[in-house]
Design a protein around this nucleic acid. Structure first.
Lengths: 238, 238
DNA sequence: AAAGGAAATGCTGTATACAATAAATAGCAT
DNA sequence: ATGCTATTTATTGTATACAGCATTTCCTTT
């Protein structure tokens, strides 16, 4: 066996293993958020273990984490699949975002500075660019990142984590109930928001965020997806 | 081997296993929330596995879940220990509770009915009784349960789950920064709150909840626990 | 031919064995 | 005696083997 093969087969040390785990978690999480893995898609442990070159043990750990974040659904003896949010869950998520993200705007405005504003503008720019070049998956992810970064700037790590979870789930909701080609966030909304925050106008930013989120929610078509077991009577007219 | 021993040694079927896992999770979670397991306490996998009669595999799953809920801290190669919240985390948690729990009060008031009010009054009664009979651990748990049930009555499962997490962490915070014999919640506060909610006075309930949470936070002494490595220079005056 | 059931297969849940590393301790040198 | 290093011990991280349910497939029966 050559040295290269030996190196490849070498059991990774634990620190490397931790980083690898985190990388795999993010790979799966990103794939879900970017909608490359669509709601309902099954995630078999063996398949994932083979793709990423680790054993099922590590995969299970990652799937459990994703399940607690409600990105995947774990049904006993059936395994994991990408969560298909219900209409009720969608309402809850957007109501929660209204409460939390809007409530954070005054704090964010208070703590805003030039460096943070520049960072946000760069993120908004990348998002617009992705949208222009038709990379919808990337744009969805960047949009979620923008909202999360905003929450982090409030200084409250706990609430920022909540927002992170809500944004991930929002991506799933958009995948199921959103219209094709409509991203949810208007391309210039984020830039406008930065403007209000830069001038320290927290209340105005709060109101704007509220309209922004309402606009996203309103762009959804809240018809429940057809079940896998179609109602034949209805389809064929009795 | 007798039949009884055979029955005991029998590998539990999977459904039984699931219930058992949930029971163990709640046993550990309750012990932490009720402060029978104090912050900093180490949770060795072998010890837990033996106590509950399952293998380390199941224990690890439970510990990971508790870690994601930030009730236990998982340090690589060192294992699990009950989380010792920092002063900053404590501030974040109570700020988050201010935002979320207060924000939910109008919804709760709108959805309040006789059955719900009766249930809440019963919970408040049990809490008072536990406090009177000196069962501080039980009282802490019942107080957290009250806040969680309240959030659930808002109808938003997502936000209710967030409140559940925040209340659990609040118990840890009280364990570290609270004064002995002072529970945080005043005994009659919860009853007063139910009154406002029963009359549909959401705004008044919101204001009351805000004062209630502020009072709990104010009762904490925010001095960081002494470190294991004391600052000798300061202690001995240079 | 359709429906019901039984065998077979696929996949997950659990335990256990083994590898790796961090902490503790003892021994050695200065 | 103190500080450093090596060995031992305790504990976690990972893989794998095996057991059990769910689903599918094929055969039998009506």
């Amino acid at each position: 066996m050559s040295d290269a093969q030996t190196a490849l087969k070498r059991r990774p040390t634990d620190k490397e293993g931790d980083e690898r785990h985190e990388a795999i978690y993010r790979a799966v999480s990103d794939a879900i958020v970017e909608q490359r893995l669509k709601p309902g898609a099954r995630l078999r442990e063996d398949a994932l273990a083979e793709v990423f070159g680790i054993s099922r043990t590590g995969i299970r750990k990652i799937l459990q984490r994703l399940a607690l974040e409600q990105l995947v659904t774990l049904t006993p003896r059936r395994g994991a699949s990408v969560t298909r949010p219900t209409a009720e869950e969608a309402k809850d998520v957007f109501d929660a975002r209204q409460l939390i993200e809007c409530g954070l705007m005054p704090d964010v405005a208070r703590r805003m500075n030039a460096a943070a504003a520049a960072e946000l503008r760069e993120m908004a720019r990348q998002e617009r660019q992705a949208l222009r070049s038709g990379q919808q998956s990337v744009a969805i992810r960047l949009s979620a990142d923008f909202h999360v970064r905003l929450a982090q700037l409030s200084g409250n790590a706990t609430l920022a984590e909540f927002v992170e979870r809500l944004c991930s789930r929002s991506s799933l909701i958009l995948a199921v109930y959103g219209h094709r080609g409509h991203l949810g966030c208007e391309s210039h909304d984020h830039d406008d928001l930065i403007g209000y925050l830069e001038t320290g106008n927290g209340e105005r930013a709060k109101a704007f965020m509220s309209r922004h989120l309402k606009a996203i929610e309103a762009s959804l078509s809240m018809v429940e997806e057809e079940e896998n077991v179609p109602d034949l009577q209805q389809i064929f007219g009795v």
